[in-house]
């Protein structure tokens, strides 16, 4: 998103300009597939939000009626609220943990590298597999708690609204903390050693060094990682769908799930498209907001965001 401006100006030599025609066609295959199955659908969803379609039959124009229906539906603010809660809580849990783990992993000791090998395993599993595992593990009758006879663990984890939300935040953290700590690890290793030496000479302790050197140096990394977390949290679908299916009731019905349920279970593609458009707008707004927060220099740090 941000690296458009990054093209080195040095490449603008005269010999290249003349040749651009001879290479431009090489973008065609990628462009064709991307436009057809990526860009076109994005525009299409806006179009479909003004139609009536049940997913099977003919598509009819419907004017702004879907928008009126969805915007006046109390389900929308609820879904937005749940999405926001999942976003905020998973950010609040993941950021400090990933930061701490990243600093830990940045150490060059052997055992830390070994521990890191294990940390990454959750990243390899599909969200479906993770959700299925935790569903079994937390089952009040057949799960880990029941087997260990620990009443603390034998709760109806997925049957009570607050608990179910907590479980989702935990499982998301379990899955994604390693990814973010990997980002932090790389950033911590790039902090110049001289800064730490200076701090040590000044007699700064570990904690002060962390708050006065490590943390400020990681500012842009925190913004990058937070952007990925926040925007990424809008798209949690597999995990929540398999784990709770939005339940109990609609307690964990986030926007993406709300869209699926309206579209593919209730066969109301028009209103579902409205939700999809809202999803895109919220995502863009958050990405821009976080970019603004980071100031103009973040462009190079946000590569891949």
């Amino acid at each position: 998103m941000t690296s458009v401006e990054q093209r080195p100006l040095t490449a603008l030599t005269s010999s290249h300009v003349g040749r651009s025609g001879s290479v431009a066609w090489m973008t065609l295959p990628a462009l064709a597939v991307f436009v057809l199955f990526g860009l076109l659908p994005l525009l299409g969803v806006l179009g479909l939000s003004f139609t009536r379609w049940d997913g099977l039959g003919a598509i009819h124009a419907a004017g702004a009626s879907n928008w009126r229906t969805v915007l006046s539906d109390p389900g929308l603010p609820h879904a937005l609220w749940v999405t926001f809660l999942v976003m905020l809580l998973s950010w609040a849990v993941q950021t400090p943990a990933a930061l701490l783990l990243g600093v830990f992993m940045a150490g060059h000791q052997r055992y830390r590298a070994l521990l890191a090998v294990f940390y990454f395993i959750p990243l390899l599993l599909s969200s479906a597999a993770i959700a299925i595992t935790y569903k079994a593990l937390l089952d009040p009758n057949f799960g880990l708690g029941a087997g260990l006879h620990l009443s603390l663990l034998t709760q109806d984890w997925l049957g009570r609204p607050a608990l179910a939300l907590g479980v989702i935040v935990f499982v998301v953290s379990w899955q994604f903390i390693p990814f973010h700590s990997l980002i932090y690890q790389g950033a911590v290793r790039q902090i110049p050693a001289s800064m730490y030496e200076a701090a040590a000479l000044d007699g700064a302790g570990r904690v002060r060094t962390f708050f006065y050197i490590t943390l400020p140096q990681l500012k842009y990394t925190v913004i990058t990682s937070s952007t990925l977390m926040v925007v990424g949290s809008l798209t949690f679908f597999d995990l929540i769908f398999v784990l709770t299916a939005g339940g109990p009731g609609d307690a964990t019905r986030v926007l993406a799930l709300d869209m699926y349920i309206r579209g593919f279970q209730a066969n109301l593609m028009g209103p579902a498209s409205v939700i999809a458009v809202i999803l895109v707008l919220v995502g863009l707004a958050l990405a821009l907001l976080l970019r603004r927060l980071g100031g103009s220099t973040t462009a190079s740090q946000m590569e891949g965001a």
């Binding site: 458009v4 990526g38 999809a276 965001a305």
Partner: peptide, 20 residues
Amino acid sequence: LFMMGLAIPLQAAIIPIYLL
């Protein structure tokens, strides 16, 4: 265009993809 694509969530495009 490609860089714009980084910001497209699959979920948001799924209904038109289904139609397509």
